[in-house]
Computed example of a mutant assay.
Amino acid sequence: MDSSPLVLLHAFPFDSRMWDGVRDLLKPITIDQRGGDRSPDLVAIADDVVELLDRRGIERAVLGGCSMGGYVAMAVLRRAPDRVAGLVLADTRAGADTEEARANRLAMAARVEAEGVGWVPDAVAAGLLGPSPDAAVLGRVRELILAQDPAEVAWAQRAMAARPDSTDVLAAAGVPALVLVGEHDALTPPALARELAGVLRRGEYVEVAGAGHLTPLEAPDAFTSAVLGWRRRVGV
């Protein structure tokens, strides 16, 4: 059986270049998740993903997402479940934000609009990466964040703040799913990732040693190996 195409959806606050380290072997389709002038709702990005599949004549794809990208994958699953052949959910969660988390997102959105993104790397990098990040990885994280449009960073924060709980959607999905998480992920820790894998009817769990919240950037070889091995086992 031929494998389904793999669509990878990036984390916040990055763009599709975060997948550069896994492109050679995974051969993914990637997009830059952009809100533009639309209302801040991840359904808008989900619609973009479905439109991309339509343009390419793809009936069903394996959707992979890291952090915010995972939320987008869940939005696609809610919107068009028949287009999803499998899921790769990395460093993400099923639940909606708490009131505190939502308030923090909205505060960051307002500050980015007022001040730009220059302050963002120093504010978020330590929380995104493992305890001893490689200098090249840290530099790449800073570079990608500083390249983002402040309006899009603000849009993404507001869209994530508004997202619903996806637990029921994931529990109803019959497709194979791989849940990956960094050993040192402080934002969506391994215990939460194990719960996510347990929600999924056909979920597998992989913990990536040494990594934090950005497993594809921090440990691209381990991420690639896990995804390829899982795809071979489940046949998607």
Rank of each mutant, 00 (worst) to 15 (best):
V50S: 04
V50K: 03
E51M: 11
L53S: 09
L53R: 06
L53G: 09
D54Q: 13
R55A: 09
R56A: 00
E59M: 08
R60M: 00
V62K: 01
L63I: 02
G64W: 00
G64T: 00
G64N: 03
G65Y: 05
G65I: 12
C66Q: 15
S67Q: 15
S67F: 15
M68N: 13
G69R: 06
G70V: 08
Y71H: 12
V72G: 00
A73Q: 00
M74N: 10
R79T: 07
R79N: 08
R79L: 12
A80Y: 01
A80D: 07
A80K: 03
P81A: 07
P81I: 04
D82P: 10
R83E: 04
R83D: 02
G86L: 07
G86E: 09
L87V: 04
L87A: 07
L87K: 10
V88S: 06
V88Q: 07
V88T: 10
L89R: 06
A90T: 12
D91A: 13
D91V: 11
D91W: 02
T92C: 04
R93Y: 04
A94F: 01
A94C: 01
G95D: 10
G95P: 00
G95R: 12
A96W: 02
E99D: 14
E100R: 12
E100Y: 08
A101N: 10
R102K: 10
N104F: 08
R105F: 01
L106P: 05
A107H: 10
A107P: 08
A107K: 12
M108G: 09
A109T: 05
A110V: 06
A110T: 13
V112Y: 04
E113H: 08
E115P: 05
G116I: 14
G116E: 13
G118Q: 03
G118K: 03
W119M: 04
W119Q: 02
V120L: 13
P121G: 01
A123Y: 12
A123L: 07
A125I: 14
A125T: 15
A125H: 02
A126P: 05
G127F: 01
G127K: 12
L129T: 13
G130F: 12
P131K: 07
P133T: 07
D134S: 14
D134C: 13
A135N: 14
A136W: 15
V137Q: 14
V137P: 14
G139Y: 08
V141F: 15
R142V: 15
R142K: 15
L144C: 05
L144S: 08
A147S: 15
P150M: 11
P150E: 08
A151V: 13
A151E: 13
E152N: 15
A154H: 03
A154V: 13
Q157A: 11
Q157W: 10
M160D: 14
M160Q: 15
A161F: 09
A162D: 13
A162Q: 09
R163C: 10
P164R: 03
D165H: 07
D165M: 07
D165L: 07
D165W: 06
S166T: 10
T167H: 00
T167M: 01
D168W: 01
V169C: 05
L170E: 06
A171S: 13
A171K: 11
A172L: 02
A173F: 06
V175T: 06
A177F: 01
L178G: 06
L178K: 14
V179R: 02
L180D: 01
V181L: 12
V181N: 09
